[in-house]
Amino acid sequence: MRLFIEPSDVWLFRDGKPFTAGSDHRAGSRFPPSPTTIQGALRSKVLLESGVSLVAFANREAAAQTIADDIGWPGEQKLPFRLQGPFLARRLFPGGPVERLYSAPADLALTKHELRKEQRFLYLTPAPALSIRSDLEALKLEDELRLLWAEGEERLTMVEGWLTQKEFGWYLTDPERLRARLNRRQSKRCRGLISEKSLFVRESRVGIALQEQARRPTEGMLFEVEYIRPRQCVGLLVEIGPAEGDIAPAIAAAFGQVGSHGTMSLGGEGRLARWEVISEDITPAPLIVERYFKVVLLTPALFKQGWRTDWNKLFGGSVRLHAAAVGAPETISGWDVARNREKAARPTVPAGSVYFFEKLDASPLQLREAFTNDDAHLGFGQFAIGAWHV
């Protein structure tokens, strides 16, 4: 079941930074939001549609057992369904087909010359002759991690923006075709990638804390909150599937069949969102794993060792990590409704990060559904495999 979710108001998706009265004055938003935000909103929607008492559900009473079988009890780590997403998506016109968008991969760079205005796109690749070795035992780095580089003496800047579904397919299978297309756009003074501003706007609003009982302003307690306002026809794409067997009856009843639509609360302050069940296939085309390949994260990932893990165990085969283009870590947190407290903050590897691997033997890799150690069922670690031409 695939849902396209659009805003009826601005959205608030807090980042993982602390925002406690008196300690900080600004709350930022991340977009797309964390998978944990989406699963919480969907479970709340299904629970409300079921008619089960929230108190009975929170207290794990027998009256709530049926709905708990479909969406899990509060605070449970393993849920009876799986999510993919959330992904940024858009319609080119109201009521049209939904197109999934992809964050610019971290190995895509743009030249920056101080004298010439011309810029061109290129790819960072593992350097063939340069390698680094670490004698820092505590880091436990791979023996031969390569530097990422690009030919030429021009300065490089990282790329920000979004690729269309067709362009991302080229990135995976025919990267030079994508690079040529982006450079043609750049030469015409058009932005090569879809810009953030063309998809959504960040709005900051100022408020003041109120006294709990008197409801009067508290001196010195000004704060600023950043909201997200997606453009028309821009929203989020989510896929809900069963952990095993068929999709849960309560989920099917809450969202219905293709073409069904409704409203739900989403994100901070319970802002209103419109959802619709769609039929479009939004999964990137699978690619056969050659000896050399790269993995691109489509949603944030959680690894045991920061940005890395036991790759052989994750792939179920023998592989070697040659290099990685990893973005700055994003912290996820949130509010634990069942325990009425903040969730522990966890750093994630952001979407768009790229890992370059070599398959070391002829045995097939046992690729998992997600490229992450934790919370794969919530949508973390969604990935695509692309060609790495050595």
Score class of each variant (00 low, 15 high):
N340Y: 13
V337F: 12
T164H: 06
L3R: 07
E6W: 06
G316E: 09
R43S: 04
G85M: 07
W162H: 08
S103L: 11
V159H: 00
W149D: 09
K313P: 01
R320A: 09
A252L: 09
P329T: 03
L147F: 15
Q211I: 01
K140E: 13
D69K: 07
L321F: 08
F371P: 01
F371I: 01
F357H: 02
P217F: 12
A62F: 07
G152N: 09
W307Y: 12
K112S: 14
V225G: 10
L302T: 03
A376F: 11
E118S: 11
L48M: 12
E144S: 14
R271D: 07
L287N: 07
P249V: 11
Q39L: 12
L54V: 08
K294M: 09
E358V: 14
G96R: 06
L163C: 05
G352Y: 01
A338N: 07
Q382P: 05
V206E: 15
L47G: 05
Y355K: 01
A285S: 13
T66V: 14
N59I: 06
F57C: 08
G256V: 10
K313G: 12
G267P: 08
L314P: 02
E358C: 10
L210T: 08
L115R: 14
S333P: 03
V326N: 03
F31S: 06
A376E: 02
Q211C: 03
S29N: 14
L3I: 09
I247F: 10
G245P: 04
K313N: 07
A254S: 12
F93V: 00
K17W: 12
H389I: 14
G85C: 05
F315V: 13
P347T: 02
A129M: 09
R339C: 03
G268P: 03
A362G: 15
E358M: 10
R60G: 09
Q213M: 10
P97R: 02
V55I: 13
G22R: 12
S53R: 03
H377V: 03
P286E: 02
P347V: 02
R189S: 09
W275I: 11
A254K: 00
A243S: 15
V206W: 15
F168T: 00
Q39C: 11
G85T: 10
T263S: 13
A338T: 07
R368N: 08
V295R: 04
G267R: 04
F31N: 03
P230L: 06
R82S: 05
K313R: 12
F315N: 07
K294H: 05
R271Q: 15
A252F: 04
Q77P: 00
I208W: 02
I38G: 05
L83M: 09
G245E: 01
A21C: 12
R229N: 10
T164S: 13
A21I: 11
Y292T: 14
N340W: 10
P350V: 01
F81D: 00
K140R: 12
R274F: 07
A21P: 13
A104M: 03
L79P: 02
V295H: 04
G95Y: 08
F255R: 05
V238C: 06
K197Y: 02
D310T: 01
R189A: 13
A253S: 15
M158I: 03
E342F: 14
R91H: 08
R189M: 12
S204C: 07
A138T: 11
K304Y: 02
P286Y: 08
V225Q: 15
P175S: 04
G316C: 09
E153H: 08
V234Q: 04
D375L: 12
